[in-house]
Structure formats: C-alpha cells, structure tokens
Amino acid sequence: MSVFDIFAKLDREKTAKAAQPIEWLVVGLGNPGAKYEGTRHNAGFRALEGYCSRTGQKIDKIKYKALIGEGMLGGARVLFMKPQTFMNLSGEAVRDAAAFYNIPPERVIVLSDDISLDVGALRVRAKGSAGGQNGLKNIIQHLGTDEFPRVKIGVGQKPHPEYDLADWVLSRFTADEQQAIDKACADAVDAAACIISKGCPAAAQEFNGKRVK
C-alpha cells in the first residue's frame, strides 16, 4: 500500500466517523472560571480536562451554554460537555443538548464530585438521587428523571461536622491527595467508556471503589 493509499484510507475512516450520529452525552460538572480551577467541586471538569490532555480531544466550542467537543468513546460517537453555567444550573445545558440530538436520559453520563467517597474512590450508578450534589439535582430537574448513569468521583468528607460544606467543596486538594484524584479522574472517563461499551453493571464491577495502589 502506497503512502497515498494510506492517507486516503485515513481520510475515509475520518469521514465515516464524522458521519456517525451523536449517540451519548458525557458531561463533566464544575464551575467555570479560574477561581474554581482545581477545587473539589470541579472534579468532573478535571476528569474531562485530563482526558483531553492525554488524547488530544478538544472541548472548546461554545454551544448549549457549555464548552463542547465531539469525539469517540467506548466505540460510540459522543458529545463531551462542560456546562458553563454555575453548578446549580448544569441541567440547562444537558437538557438542551439532549433535546437537540434526541439522546435519551439513559445515554447521558455525568461525571461529578462526591463528598461521601474518599479521595480517589469511584462509584458508578445507573440512576439515583442527587445525594446533595446540586449539579445532579438540576440535571434531574431538567431531564425530568433520575434514571441516567453517573460516575461519582470521591473528593473526601468534611474534616469535621462544623466545617462549612460550601467552603469544603470549593477548597483545593492537598499535595498528598493529588495522585489519588488524578488517577480517579482518569479512571472516571474509562468508566464512562465502559458504561457505553459494556453497560453500567460491568462498569460498576470494574471501577467501583477503585483507588490508587
């Protein structure tokens, strides 16, 4: 095969992929702006940003009140999304994109922080309540259902009961926590890929509780 044939083949593959419809939404939750970068509440953003860094995926177009990018994950064509509303209005972007692409809730995967899990732990769920996470709560409100998959990324519990919850989720990870949260964020996107290719039960079995060794 000549070099021209190779490039022609790559062009055909690229065109074929681009022609595939968007089948899934993969949404990372966080608050926009430099003020919130690296905070516990931005674990969903961090997961997608890490994925972009590793793979070259772009999430840089503005639409649906979000930064978006089309790509392949788990063998399907997906729309990656980082809502640019604040956390408690995340559902607006998810609702609009899901409606445009006619994507049902069971194909909307949300990556979010979870204060009930230790830093670095994951929990895959096919459905369920918001558990006090305001972004999930707003998505449930706008989709009209809690039956959408989510990958919860552990960010640790408050150090003591009197600690203000808002202050805690807007705090940054300690130096000792960085390796664990980076690994969990990478695993979170892998878990989303597993949900797409194998389903939630398989992803939960493989990733729930996963920690840095």
Rank of each mutant, 00 (worst) to 15 (best):
F4T: 10
F207N: 11
L136V: 13
G128V: 10
R125G: 10
Y101A: 06
G74I: 10
E92A: 00
D167Q: 11
A204M: 08
D11I: 05
A19C: 11
A193Q: 12
K63A: 08
L25P: 07
I62D: 01
V27N: 00
G144Y: 06
M87K: 01
A99V: 03
G135S: 08
D118K: 05
V78N: 01
R46K: 09
D11L: 11
G71Y: 10
A166G: 08
E147P: 14
E177Y: 15
A76I: 08
D113K: 05
V27S: 02
L29K: 02
Q141R: 11
D182S: 11
N102C: 02
N88S: 08
L25Q: 11
A121K: 03
V169C: 12
Q141M: 10
G74M: 03
A99H: 14
L143W: 08
H142N: 06
I140A: 04
F45K: 04
G30I: 01
R172C: 14
P201N: 14
R46C: 07
T15R: 14
G144E: 04
Y64Q: 15
V108G: 04
A98F: 01
D114N: 00
I195Y: 10
Q178E: 15
G75Y: 03
C194M: 15
Q133I: 05
A97E: 03
A202T: 13
A93Y: 00
T15V: 14
G135I: 06
I59S: 03
D11H: 09
D182F: 15
K58W: 04
I68C: 13
A18I: 03
L143G: 07
G144M: 14
F207V: 15
S129N: 06
T55D: 09
N134W: 00
E23L: 13
I195T: 02
D96N: 08
L122W: 06
W168A: 14
R54M: 10
F86T: 00
Q20T: 10
I62G: 01
L143C: 13
C185E: 11
V155H: 04
L10A: 10
M72V: 13
G91Q: 01
G120N: 06
G91V: 00
E13F: 11
W24V: 04
S171A: 13
A93M: 04
I103L: 01
C194Y: 15
T145F: 14
G120C: 06
S197P: 02
T85K: 00
L165V: 15
I62Q: 01
K14Y: 07
E49T: 07
C194I: 01
A130S: 05
P21E: 11
T174S: 15
V212L: 08
L143S: 11
F207G: 13
E206N: 14
L73F: 09
G74W: 11
K198C: 12
V26G: 01
I181H: 04
M81C: 03
R54D: 12
T55Q: 10
I109Q: 10
G120D: 03
S90H: 07
L67W: 05
P32M: 00
N208G: 14
R46V: 02
L136Q: 02
D118M: 02
I6F: 10
C200E: 12
A19L: 13
V27I: 00
